[in-house]
Write a protein that binds this DNA or RNA. Structure first.
Lengths: 342, 342
DNA sequence: CTCCCGTCGGTAACCGGTTACCCTAACGTA
DNA sequence: TACGTTAGGGTAACCGGTTACCGACGGGAG
């Protein structure tokens, strides 16, 4: 039913090889022949069958991006950037949603679906350190987010500790001492939550201040809702709070919402800072101080590394590189703005 | 190099047909044989080659979702929902980004890349009414957003006019009369902007009020930034404003940010309402009154219609259905809350 | 007038599944 | 014992590109 290359060849009076040459812009085709073939293609309405090409070539021109949830602004902005970067390199992106659930993440690594694409950019959330060996796969893989314990897998990380430290120092500089942390959960692992907590407490420790655990509001998922709930719990404990550090922006915005509901002024009564620099934080009222983790660079780098591995045909190998993108503090109204320190 | 079905067959001492039967859960395989085949698969580490399967089957198990930008909350939330709905039906989603640019949208409709998937869910933005015939494609297609002028293409729409009218009536009910519209651009076409403007002005007209065009802030793109700019332009014209209707939520939030910067109180001085009910609007300060357009239902319906068409193998046909999902007004703080009308 | 070489294009095998069609063995029945 | 029936499984063609390999043709050099 559909028009094939052989149909075109017949129509144009040439061979399939020639049609293929034309379609793929190969040399050694005379202009007149090319013309004729293109005309036939147009007349017959020929469209290439990608499954067939993929089968022959052994590659698909697609990569998989696996993220927890597309609706979280950080990931939607990241995905957007990955898609753009992939398009620049001629790749299309297939998006998998893991929900941040360990089982689904493991499944993404091994499922047959994965094999529909040439490689995987993977932002794990639920994986445990003991799952590290699961990342030793035989296809091109680039990890985003936290570091794999070791191994040969490329890995693009952000400066979580450095960024968190900068937030801590900034809040201290603004004279805040009773700082709540919203979102902390696991403080020991190698996950973002842990690293961002560590960097922060380190800044406090350097200033001779100890973080009061009663000012920690835990949140397993990082959403506006859980941020708000965590903030409420902290406030309800009755310990004074003059600043809030949300481990990411949506947590911070959820917390800010609770402060608003309780009539606390930001930044006069309570300063607020987040992490990720999602677009929304630039428009909240007040705008949100945060850490720009270099997301565009992360996206580009991840795609490049992956495409590179695909092109080289070297699926794994010992060349697992860890690239850490430098973060940058973005000071906005929620901590008093870029003006003079309070 | 990679393990094929024939390798498995040889190893298990059966034929490829039997391996295929096992892999695809077909009947007529004795338990013992099945066991043996599964063991061989496991030993050899066999993984199915999807390109080959796709070539044989003529389908890929993937669908394309084409949206303007993934970073816009409406589309990221929609994409999330489409991905979930597709997964329920056994499909994976390939995301294309059009940027809302007409050329890219037309390209998505016809490109070879499109042929890598079984169907397309398409949310056009830049297409003109005169492009309607371009939508008469020979593969399964479901449109989101505004109506195609006519034709045989399935189409899931939201109740733009009804929703916008509800917003208008709500603002009037709250005693607002000098209402700015942010985002309007084309007021005649069949696009969302036009419909949402029409519904609104109709509500005003019904109340005997005429919309002052000086209170219209145009914005071609619908983002927080353009919303803010449009709001500034309106305010700078010096005409009084006691309410703002953003044609979508991010426009409204951008406008709200400007009101905040200028020291205008929301909702006391200026009420604000949007459209789309993105999650962010529930957490802004104040929270944003908006229209919930039934996005989850839109996503599910679109996927179902598409999968249905794919399954039926009836690419087009005269059965183009238009489904309109009913919108619902969500009253929040930015217009005075659900309490008694001011 | 040959020979050589580079250009252009044809032939057919191959990628790795699916499946129409066929055969066999085993069991039940007359 | 002969035969029908069906479950189980084998064979080979096919999906539609890609490409290794081969051959023909035309022009310039010897």
């Amino acid at each position: 039913m559909p028009v094939t290359m052989r149909d075109v060849a017949r129509h144009a009076g040439v061979s399939v090889k020639t049609v293929s040459n034309v379609v793929n812009d190969f040399p050694h085709v005379s202009p007149s022949t090319r013309e004729r073939v293109l005309a036939s293609i147009s007349v017959l309405g020929y469209r290439m069958n990608f499954s067939a090409r993929n089968l022959s070539l052994g590659r698909t021109g697609m990569i998989t991006l696996a993220v927890p949830e597309l609706r979280l602004p950080y990931f939607s902005e990241l995905s957007d950037e990955v898609i753009v970067a992939a398009a620049e390199r001629g790749y299309t992106v297939l998006v998998e949603r893991t929900g941040g659930v360990r089982e689904r993440e493991l499944e993404v690594l091994t499922s047959d679906r994965r094999r529909m694409t040439d490689g995987l950019i993977f932002s794990p959330l639920g994986l445990r350190p003991s799952d590290a060996h699961r990342l030793e796969v035989d296809y091109p893989l680039v990890l985003l987010g936290e570091r794999a314990l070791h191994g040969s897998v490329h890995h693009v990380a952000m400066g979580n500790v450095a960024g968190a430290r900068a937030v801590g120092e900034h809040l201290l500089e603004r004279g805040r001492r009773r700082i709540a942390v919203v979102g902390s959960y696991d403080t020991r692992g190698a996950g973002a939550g842990s690293l961002r907590t560590q960097g922060f407490t380190r800044a406090l420790a350097d200033a001779g201040i100890e973080h009061d655990p009663r000012r920690t509001g835990e949140a397993l998922e990082w959403t506006r809702t859980t941020g708000a709930e965590a903030m409420r719990r902290v406030l309800d404990r009755g310990v004074g709070v003059d600043a809030v550090y949300g481990l990411n922006d949506v947590l911070a915005l959820g917390a800010m919402r609770v402060l608003y509901e309780r009539g606390l002024r930001v930044p006069e009564d309570v300063a607020v800072a987040g992490f990720d620099d999602i677009e929304e934080g630039g428009f909240s009222c007040p705008s949100l101080t945060t850490v720009q983790p270099g997301r565009p660079e992360i996206a580009r780098t991840a795609v490049w590394l992956l495409v590179d591995r695909i092109a080289r045909g070297a699926p794994a190998g010992p060349g697992g590189r860890e690239l850490v993108v430098a973060p940058e503090l973005v000071v906005r109204e929620s901590t008093g703005g870029a003006g003079e320190p309070a």
